[in-house]
């Protein structure tokens, strides 16, 4: 089984979020990047488990600049065999998906895994876009994935429940909680990652369809109103008359 895992970066969860250049750009100063948790914990780790069970290989791919190599090394340290970086700044989900699908079309993967969404933009777009461009089936928000030869049994989120689906490879799958448990890279993995191949691939020329023109921060919440635990009726009264939510 030849698996491609799409890896993106996201600011460490405790990062302070602020914007520069007239609120048009994310302020990266002092921001520590991590592997997007869905990509790492669920997509990558499940891919590695499948390889351990059935043989094959796990490649990771990132559309990004040379600074993203730090998170790619982390993915290699966790156990991916090799890494591909498409050398361009990601513009929007569409252009990222077209870059990845261009590479994937030439390399015959059995499975392309993405995270459920990126933490920064929460778009849930890239996986479905790759699938459509490659004319492949797409299953999103998968929480369980078993392989039997080239037939996959997948559980994924549905409105108000879970659905169990069967599909043959090749396929694109977006991964959510439940797929696997987080793996901490060990020293050997970290050492091995240094010598694993990281191929830099030139981008194709592709337009983007959307653009984040500006950002803003939410207005500060007004101070929290404290209520005496002996007087809960007051809370109910406030929820009814002031907040108007009950």
């Amino acid at each position: 089984m030849k698996i491609l895992v799409c890896i993106s970066k996201s600011p460490d969860t405790t990062s302070k979020i602020s914007f520069i250049d007239n609120n048009s750009k994310f302020n990266e100063e002092g921001v520590q990047y991590i592997v997007n948790p869905y990509d790492e914990w669920y997509a990558l780790v499940r891919a590695l488990e499948l390889k351990e069970e059935n043989g094959g290989s796990v490649s990771i791919i990132t559309v990004g600049n040379s600074q993203d190599e730090a998170i790619m090394r982390k993915a290699l340290a966790i156990g991916a065999d090799n890494a591909i970086r498409i050398d361009t700044d990601p513009k929007d989900a569409y252009s990222v998906a077209m870059q990845i699908s261009e590479y994937a079309k030439k390399n015959n993967f059995d499975m392309i895994l993405t995270g459920k969404e990126t933490i920064n933009y929460n778009g849930s777009q890239v996986g479905g876009m790759i699938a459509e461009d490659m004319d492949l089936p797409f299953i999103s928000l998968a929480s369980k994935l078993e392989a039997n030869g080239n037939t996959l049994k997948i559980e994924s989120e549905d409105i108000g429940g879970i659905q169990v689906l069967e599909v043959n490879t090749p396929v694109v799958i977006s991964c959510a909680k439940g797929m696997a448990e987080q793996r901490i890279p060990n020293m050997r993995g970290i050492m091995a990652a240094r010598t694993k191949p990281l191929n830099i691939v030139p981008p194709i020329d592709v337009e983007s369809l959307t653009k984040f023109e500006s950002y803003n921060l939410p207005e500060a919440k007004s101070a929290c109103k404290m209520i005496n635990p002996e007087n809960i009726d007051e809370l109910v009264e406030l929820l009814h008359n002031e907040a108007k939510v009950i």
Binding site: A93, Y94, A97, S124, Q125, V126, G127, G128, M129, A131, E132, D133, F138, I139, S140, L141, S174, L209
Partner: peptide, 10 residues
């Protein structure tokens, strides 16, 4: 989340 991205490319 499964169809909107497909439709976007289509």
């Amino acid at each position: 989340k499964t169809i909107a991205p497909r439709l976007s490319v289509k």
